[in-house]
């Protein structure tokens, strides 16, 4: 079974993070699998003489099992500066590619979305979750710097609120994430999530692909989403902090590695 599954139904694509036994934690292998899928989506929407369809214009991103994504799988890269740097660069590149897909990307946040997992939520265009879900950026609590997600969170909720969220660490409820502007819609319970998501996806699918793509392209241009250098620097900064002896010692203790 693939770590990332993709299904296409005409204008609607669904991408599922599929590592449920590890709460969809982002390992090098999982990030690589997600890259492959996002590259497939990019290829489907790249104009070519052989293709008649313009490809999907709506993408739903969700997690298999009970979690959306528990964050970076740091245990697997502990002790290796090279592997941890690679992990953060893959995350940065994935967020950049997701943002530039010519489709409206909807995060269906079906369970906890933590750290880098919450970063994936933030980079999507629209987000749905439920009241008592758990979300947030607890990186600073573990001596880790959430640098890669920071530019995306600043764009999503504005610099003042992003400062509060990223420096405070900890987790918040789905309701609080909605209040802060991190999610578009918050439904009462997990059982309400799928119907609400399908209603939103149907509305987007019925919309004009040209109009949605033109609007998203303009948004990306005006809000700095096409700036790769900041993300590249952020991945380096995050890796440097991760590889300090203090953080390595703290993570070794916390993760029991």
């Amino acid at each position: 079974m693939s770590l990332a599954t993709l299904s296409i139904d005409g204008p609607l694509a669904r991408l599922t993070i599929n590592r449920p036994e590890q709460r969809n934690a982002l390992s090098l292998e999982l990030l690589t699998a997600l890259h492959v899928r996002v590259d497939e989506l990019t290829a489907m929407t790249t104009p070519s003489p052989e293709r008649t369809s313009a490809g999907p214009h709506v993408l739903a991103l969700t997690g298999a099992g009970k979690a959306f994504c528990a964050g970076m799988d740091l245990k697997a890269v502990l002790g290796s500066a090279e592997r941890s740097r690679r992990l953060l660069v893959l995350l940065a590149e994935l967020t950049y590619k997701l943002r530039r897909l010519p489709m409206v990307v909807v995060a269906v946040v079906n369970g906890p979305a933590i750290g880098g997992g919450c970063g994936l939520v933030t980079v999507c265009d629209l987000q749905l979750t439920f009241t008592d879900n758990k979300m947030g950026f607890p990186e600073v609590d573990m001596g880790v710097c959430p640098a890669v997600v920071a530019p995306w969170l600043v764009r999503r909720i504005g610099p003042g609120r992003a400062r509060q969220v990223l420096l405070s660490g900890g987790l918040m409820s789905g309701a609080e994430a909605h209040r802060l502007g991190m999610v578009t819609e918050c439904v009462p319970t997990i059982t309400d999530l799928a119907p609400a998501a399908e209603a939103l996806l149907a509305q987007l699918v019925a919309g004009s692909a040209d109009a949605l793509r033109a609007t998203k392209g303009l948004l990306n241009t005006l809000d700095g989403s096409e700036d790769w250098n900041t993300l590249e620097d952020a991945a380096k900064l995050s890796a440097d902090v991760l590889n300090t002896p203090e953080t390595q010692a703290m993570l070794t203790k916390k993760l029991g590695a």
Binding site: V104, T122, D125, L126, R155, R156, I157, G158, R161, G181, T184, L200, Q203, L204, L212, T215, K216, L218, L219, L222, D223, G224
Partner: peptide, 19 residues
């Protein structure tokens, strides 16, 4: 969008114009 970016977060403007 340029007007909205003067009122709300970029994410808010994204949400309002794509939804």
């Amino acid at each position: 969008v340029p007007g909205l970016l003067g009122m709300m977060s970029a994410g808010g403007a994204r949400e309002r114009t794509l939804d």
